[in-house]
Nucleic acid binder design. Structure first.
Lengths: 200, 200
DNA sequence: CTGAAAGCGCTAACAC
DNA sequence: GTGTTAGCGCTTTCAG
């Protein structure tokens, strides 16, 4: 188990240097002599050392982990966004912890728990205006809204211009010569699409 | 930010007791006098204290966090499983960090990183036999396979009896009097379904 | 019932 | 270049 794993101390002993030097090598500091570095890397390899992320987070005050909250995980649109977010996040050396909050209450308590526990460096909120959950957005905590309308204003947000998207799709069909164009939507966006088409 | 938050120290000072006592109250130890406890709870509330999960993990040697790895997040079946797992996990006071590993390589590196970093107490693997990724399952690390065939054996696993499920569905239709029964599937399970129907 | 001391594994700030 | 000294915030002995 995690408890029994080899620590920076063991590596230091094996390489005959101080822990600090190990830390330097691990974090790519360039103030280490090439030979020392080589010796350290050897020790690391032989002992199968992997730095403990928790201890690191503790010392650094940040966890390299982001949370992503969405109403649910099964909605294909949400899932796609999360998938993309995860790839982007990981490419930058972060982890993503995705959770779903079906209702505002769950959302509120999750946000409180996540933002307050120190487990997370920032939060991504998908569909922040669903059932008024934006009222429970974390205060003074790094947050990005996804799928927010641009009006979000105060916080950073990624918005999709649904109206323009509809217009583009319709125009495409129109250009192809189609004149009988139907749209299948849910209740909420029906109005937008209709308007979009009219204005073409 | 996390760094500026109120710590157990502040609460201790405010309540006029030692940190240890705060810790006891937080963790529901019963060796604290009712009045002390009340005083502590007051201080906690007034200062808006929330224990730091990282520090806690550090001291405890576990993180109360599980990881769930699936080939992707957008497959409805996977997403449903994750959604369920998350609810179950949370109900037991854990967090769930779901990640997707589209290919065996990603899977292998993710597993190594997660299992070795101390960030995670255990791993859930969805569809462990997809593209042979079971070869890269973590060694000596708490793991549960989901969607594994019962033959998994060595590790704990949750299996779905696809054949019996198909049989049940078909029988249901049969009983209703239907005789023309079709099945729409992907390439991999076609054989199973066909057999299931034949044996009815 | 409560407190004091030590330590989890790592990194930052200073020496040398 | 490299080592030493302090912590990060919490919990666990072990004393009182």
């Amino acid at each position: 188990m995690a408890r029994s794993r080899v620590t920076i101390r063991d590596v230091a002993a094996a390489a005959g240097v101080s822990r600090q030097t190990i830390s330097r090598v691990i974090n790519g500091s360039d103030l280490v002599s090439p030979e020392t570095e080589a010796r350290v890397r050897d020790a690391v390899r032989q002992l199968g050392y992997q730095p403990n992320a928790i201890a690191r987070s503790m010392a650094l005050g940040r966890t390299q982990t982001l949370a992503c909250l969405s109403p649910n995980l099964t909605d294909y649109t949400f899932a796609s966004v999360i998938d993309g977010a995860e790839a982007a996040v990981r490419a930058r050396g972060y982890f993503l912890m995705s959770s779903s909050a079906p209702d505002p209450d769950t959302f509120a308590s999750l946000v409180g728990e996540l933002a307050g526990s120190g487990y997370i460096d920032g939060i991504l909120v998908i569909n922040p205006f669903a059932d008024n959950r934006h009222r429970y957005l974390p205060h003074a905590f790094p947050t990005v809204l996804i799928g927010a309308r641009p009006r979000a204003g105060v916080v950073d947000s990624v918005a999709l211009d649904d109206v323009e998207a509809g217009r583009m799709a319709t125009r495409h069909l129109w250009v192809l010569g189609h004149r009988q164009i139907a749209t299948v939507t849910g209740a909420t966006c029906r109005g937008l699409f209709t308007r979009s088409i009219k204005r073409l």
